[in-house]
Amino acid sequence: MSDTYCTDCKRNTEVVFDHAAGDTVCSECGLVLESRSIDESSEWRTFADESGDHDPNRVGGPVNPFLADAALSTVISRSANGSNADSSLARLQNRGGDPDRAIVLAFKTISSMADRLSLVTTIKDRASELYKRLEDQKCTRGRNLEALVAGCIYIACRQEGKPRTVKEICSMVAGGATKKEIGRAKEFIVKQLKVEMGESMEMGTIHAGDYLRRFCSNLGMSNEEVKAVQETVQKSGDYDIRRSPISIAAAIIFMITQLSDSKKPLRDISIATTVAEGTIKNSYRDLYPHAAKIIPEWYAKERDVKNLSIPKA
């Protein structure tokens, strides 16, 4: 599932892809936003019927604008008696390496991480483009592949307006790249590509509201609570709260849930937002003096807001 603007709901909503019909359907109202989509993934077929091998083989490769024919290769099958149909050709095949093997592996890693993070295709393609530019500059050799890929995905998310925290991306790195390594890789990528790409390399400013929908969804909050959180975050921008946008978002979610019937434990909010419990408490204390002004009146009465407790250190 991913977020797309629905012309019926008049807002960004989650959509579901019906691969059988080729339709993109709004999960809120059921409107078909796009029909007859083309599936550009690889198809499965088998040509080994005579040998009794029923495992399918991929025919061709998925459409990739960053690869010409690098992903295409010919695999020599075995004959019915178990020997190679042509051993000399097989030896030549084994001897010939794929010059683009590293970049194909990087693209596969980007695709795998993007799928685990539920990222849309535009972000995946943007990350692949960034890595291809690094590869063209021949500056990837000797560097941590997973960290570079994670850095490309982080930058692509920022540029496409769907930011992810470094902790979220770090948790999806199969190779175990640390948060510090991803941070260094991100700075390296920006430095290397800034001269070539100019203003298009800018990542923009992160706002607390950029994370709200995903965080609230992870916590299973109601529509009323989500609306209250969004309005509170918007009003908090009028005050000088010197905390990171992610910390402010987490603290406001905690504040709003304490005013609802389904109070969320601080630990659950910490896990859902990837913000440490101590950081949420400190941000909460900075927001608390302004609570009566930033929390919408329709959601909580002034008396209820005054009864909010400050979490212990």
Rank of each mutant, 00 (worst) to 15 (best):
C157A: 13
Q192Y: 02
L193D: 02
C157P: 04
A185S: 15
I155Q: 08
S112K: 15
R91M: 09
I110E: 05
E34K: 15
D98W: 01
A71K: 12
G82H: 11
E224V: 14
D18M: 05
Y154Q: 11
A150E: 09
E277A: 11
S217T: 13
G60M: 04
V190Y: 12
L134K: 06
A80V: 15
C26V: 08
R95W: 10
S222P: 04
I182R: 10
V15K: 02
D210S: 10
P56D: 09
I153V: 15
P99A: 01
I153Q: 07
K235H: 12
D304G: 03
A276D: 13
N84P: 00
E196S: 12
F188K: 10
E43L: 06
E34L: 07
L259A: 04
D261S: 13
L287Q: 04
I123F: 03
T7F: 12
T274S: 13
G278K: 02
V195Q: 14
V166I: 15
A114D: 06
D240Q: 14
G175K: 10
A80C: 01
S51Y: 00
S37I: 14
Y288C: 00
H207Q: 12
Y131Q: 04
T273P: 03
F66P: 00
Q137A: 15
T46K: 08
S79G: 12
G22Y: 08
L89H: 02
E43K: 14
R164P: 01
L89D: 02
A127W: 04
S200I: 04
I76G: 03
S112L: 09
L212S: 13
R101F: 04
A208R: 12
P289D: 01
G52A: 06
G96M: 14
K306G: 03
S111Q: 07
G237F: 02
D53M: 05
R158D: 09
N12T: 12
T165N: 09
Y131A: 01
A251L: 03
L134V: 03
D240C: 07
G151V: 02
N94L: 07
M255A: 05
T46S: 15
T13H: 00
G96K: 13
M201G: 02
R133S: 11
T46E: 10
I76F: 13
S262V: 11
T257Y: 11
I241V: 14
R141Y: 10
D3N: 11
K235F: 11
R95G: 02
W44V: 06
S37C: 04
N144P: 01
H207W: 09
K179D: 06
N282A: 01
I155W: 09
G237T: 06
A292V: 11
E28L: 13
E277N: 02
R58C: 02
P65L: 12
I271M: 10
A70F: 08
A208Q: 11
I310Q: 09
A291Y: 05
D261P: 01
L134F: 08
K235N: 14
K306W: 06
A177C: 06
T13W: 01
Y288F: 13
A71H: 14
I252H: 05
G161D: 08
S244P: 01
I189H: 04
Y288T: 00
R116F: 01
D23R: 07
M221Q: 05
G142E: 05
K312Y: 08
D18H: 08
A174P: 00
D238Y: 11
D286H: 00
V149G: 03
Q234G: 03
L134N: 05
N81K: 10
E129F: 13
I253H: 10
